[in-house]
Amino acid sequence: MSESHESSQRSRQQQDGGTSPLGELSNQPTVARISGLALGSTDNVELDLDASLASLSHFPESIDFTREGRQYLYRAVRFLAGEAGITQFLDLGSGLPNENNVHQVAREHHPHARVLYADHDPVVIAHARDLVAGDDAAAVIQVDVTDTDAVLNHPTARLILDLGQPVGVVMSSLLQLIPQDDVARGLVHRTMAALPSGSYLAFSSTIAPDSNDRDALEKAGTEVGVGLKYRTPAEVNAWMEHLEPVDPGLCDVRDWRPDPNQTPLPDPHPSVRHLLGESERGRRGYLHGGVLRKP
């Protein structure tokens, strides 16, 4: 690493102000690291494995859902960069890096696409910074992503993003991590309100249409220290009423412009690999999402 890059990294860390307002999370299981197991990540610790296996005993089909969400993310970003012409992206709650990260997919269409990743998990931040090291058009900030002002007014955000031009916002499997409906809704509204016409939102969120399933799944997650909020499609769709859905609209992400020829994902972590295909036995929930344009 060059001296200038080390200086740049130190500057970004100082600008981030240390740990996230949500607190230091390296000593407790996090959804980002547990989800990483479904994508073959080894950037996890023993407590992630324990929590994941405990959670999966209640919801084994979530391995499939996580992988479906990652494949949808690729297709959504490909649409934004390719068809919609978006050249700058804000990835909120970005999670652990994997293959085909937002800046990599976007640059298949725009070699100089600019991407700001934001997350609060210190393990995510460390690995994401390694991924974009030396890249002047991609950066990572550690921040409470529900604090829109803190994100958009961050010094690094001002370097990466031009908020006078359309931005592609990514909220991939983020909203279910926010249990308060008003906070989740406010995040969508405030973020998109701060961006110009022609900006887009690509999101996905866990859904459980049956109330009994929702209660059981939320209880199981809480018991192992990984709380998720399961909502209905109608509840989530209501937060998007000021945006225009792109065809085919908001749906199970498996059905959002499926592409049987897209690059396969890495195998899951060996500890959870046996759960691949569990969703074929039954789907009590699924990932709901789509891409929407700000008029």
Rank of each mutant, 00 (worst) to 15 (best):
R114E: 09
R114V: 15
L116I: 12
Y117R: 14
Y117F: 15
D119P: 13
H120E: 11
V123I: 15
A126L: 13
H127M: 08
A128D: 11
L131P: 00
L131S: 09
V132D: 01
A133T: 10
A133K: 05
D135W: 02
D135V: 11
D136P: 05
V140I: 14
I141C: 10
V143Q: 14
D144T: 04
V145E: 08
T146D: 03
P155W: 01
T156P: 06
A157H: 08
R158N: 14
R158H: 12
L159D: 13
I160C: 08
Q165P: 00
Q165M: 12
V167M: 02
V167P: 04
G168I: 07
M171V: 02
S173A: 15
S173Q: 07
L174H: 08
L174D: 04
Q176A: 13
L177S: 00
L177T: 09
L177Y: 03
I178A: 04
Q180G: 02
Q180E: 14
D181E: 14
D182C: 03
D182E: 14
V183T: 13
V183G: 08
R185V: 01
R185Y: 04
R185M: 15
H189F: 12
R190A: 15
T191N: 03
A193L: 07
A194G: 05
G198Q: 00
Y200L: 08
Y200C: 06
L201D: 01
L201I: 09
L201N: 06
S204F: 06
S205E: 15
T206I: 10
T206G: 13
P209G: 00
D210I: 08
D210V: 03
R214P: 04
D215T: 14
D215H: 11
A216D: 12
A216V: 04
L217W: 01
L217T: 06
E218R: 04
E218A: 06
K219L: 15
